[in-house]
Amino acid sequence: MLLAIDTATRTASVALYDATGILSEHSWRSNNRHTVETAPAIAAMLSQLGVGPEALRGVAVTTGPGSFTGLRIGMSIAKGLCLALGIPILGVPSLDVTAYAAGDPGGPVLAVLEAGRGRICVARYHFVDGLPVQEGEVALVRASEWTPTFDALTLVAGEVNAALAERLLNLPDAERVAISSLAGSVRRAGYLAELAWERLEAGESDDLDSLAPVYLHQPTSGS
Rank of each mutant, 00 (worst) to 15 (best):
10 R>Y: 10
130 G>I: 07
19 A>M: 00
49 L>E: 15
159 E>M: 12
145 E>M: 11
56 L>K: 10
30 S>D: 09
58 G>Y: 06
55 A>E: 10
129 D>I: 00
1 M>R: 07
69 T>M: 09
210 S>N: 06
30 S>Y: 04
108 P>T: 13
61 V>T: 04
193 A>G: 08
206 D>P: 10
190 G>E: 07
216 L>N: 02
141 V>R: 14
70 G>F: 04
90 L>N: 03
135 E>A: 14
87 I>H: 05
204 E>T: 02
41 A>R: 12
180 S>K: 04
128 V>C: 08
194 E>M: 04
30 S>R: 00
205 S>F: 13
137 E>M: 13
11 T>P: 00
56 L>T: 08
78 A>R: 02
151 D>V: 13
112 V>K: 02
6 D>L: 10
3 L>N: 05
88 P>F: 11
133 V>S: 10
88 P>E: 01
46 L>I: 05
157 A>Y: 05
126 H>S: 13
182 L>S: 15
66 G>N: 03
50 G>P: 08
84 A>T: 12
2 L>Y: 11
181 S>R: 11
119 R>N: 12
33 R>Q: 15
118 G>Q: 06
88 P>S: 11
79 K>G: 07
197 W>K: 01
147 T>L: 13
127 F>A: 09
206 D>R: 11
14 V>F: 04
29 R>M: 13
16 L>I: 02
39 A>L: 15
12 A>I: 09
26 H>E: 12
118 G>W: 03
172 P>L: 03
